[in-house]
Design a protein around this nucleic acid. Sequence first.
DNA 1: GCTTACTAACTATCCAGTTAGTTTGACCAA
DNA 2: TTGGTCAAACTAACTGGATAGTTAGTAAGC
Lengths: 228, 228
Amino acid sequence: MVSRSTPNGTSRERLFAAAAAEFAAKGFDGAKVDRIAARARINKAMLYYHFHSKAALYRDILRQMFGTVAGAVTAVHEQGGPADAQLRRFIEAIALAAEGSPHFPAMWLREIAEGGRHLDESIVHEMRRVIETLGRILHEGRQAGIFGPVNPFVTQIGIVAPLMFFSASAPIRERFRHLMPTQVVTPRREDVVAHVQATTLAALASPGTQRARASSRSSRRSARAVPT
Amino acid sequence: MVSRSTPNGTSRERLFAAAAAEFAAKGFDGAKVDRIAARARINKAMLYYHFHSKAALYRDILRQMFGTVAGAVTAVHEQGGPADAQLRRFIEAIALAAEGSPHFPAMWLREIAEGGRHLDESIVHEMRRVIETLGRILHEGRQAGIFGPVNPFVTQIGIVAPLMFFSASAPIRERFRHLMPTQVVTPRREDVVAHVQATTLAALASPGTQRARASSRSSRRSARAVPT
DNA sequence: GCTTACTAACTATCCAGTTAGTTTGACCAA
DNA sequence: TTGGTCAAACTAACTGGATAGTTAGTAAGC
């Protein structure tokens, strides 16, 4: 028999969506399998029919989310163009991916706090694709002489962290709006994207940002923070 | 009778430390009261003797952490000086606070993902002090003509998010180092602080970053979030 | 008649919070 | 100095309500 599809997709799809919402809002431990099943309007045993365990369901969701982001940024790079334009699109692609799977930012923040306890190699592989793509864009920009030398990891954090923070913090901002100073206007997504684009490119344009140090230390880690 | 102090502080202090570590690593739901008690080397009932509940303990920890940050940035502002120097110190103060209470970043990331479910007014009040301080620094810089106009909230996110991300992600980076591209060198804290300082100041120096919007918006996507 | 999709009801464990006490030391009165 | 009183500090053992995962069986299409 083929999946019995009811309104809002097959039971498997509803399960996936319900689980993403639950995991994002409550975290792995706070999420309850019964509640996920109820939200998806299926019997709990069906969850174990489609997925091996709560943990496997969680991993499948994360893998899919990271896969989407990795695919989006890879497409950006493959499309080519000047490095600075690519970088702008890279940043936008990540913001759009966060918008497309609205539970991604919260799950990602939690997973970081968790020390990656629920990640497996295949998920990390997708993450790796993202940072490798950024590395390539930065490298091309450097070759072309439009970017200064930077540590791709620092750059990555400077891009991803604000975008994830902003998306994931929507509920908390809404919840405590009445306790915040009135002049604090909640920004729109485009404002944040524009800010990240501006700051990142500014850091890349100005050589010297992370360089100064090269001469000032002789010890431990490679003298420069650095590019390839 | 006065608190029986054993090595590593009073039982209440050990409790506080053990709970912070547990909550940061496992989240509110994942944290187990029995485990906290065991780590603190006390009987579980003692936890309920010192704190009203698991939730109250959690809140006390968060309140203390935010209070420390708020105090540090307030001191930065009170010390005065040119706005750009204040901003640099503001950023550094936050990074140092994160270093001083190493469980803070993880708890903060989780709380955002959680929608602030465990926050109360007094905690939000401390958070407010931080953003108000930033608002004052930005205002002074604007008055002095060295900063362009920006949304303080976007600026705040651009500062706090990378710092928290970086601190909280230490375990996950360590854990999956072997699966990451070799040229990705893990940055040091100072590199990240320097990057955040550089990017934030660059955005403030260049007037135009977040300005366009007031005049140019007629359709929902601002003309320049954007590509190319 | 075989596989896929589905269900109600169960089990075994875990865990926040409680209870009914015991121990410890500070202070004081005889 | 001794012994009594009190409150703070502490404990072992329990309770009741979740909750992840299982089981044994049913329906429905191919």
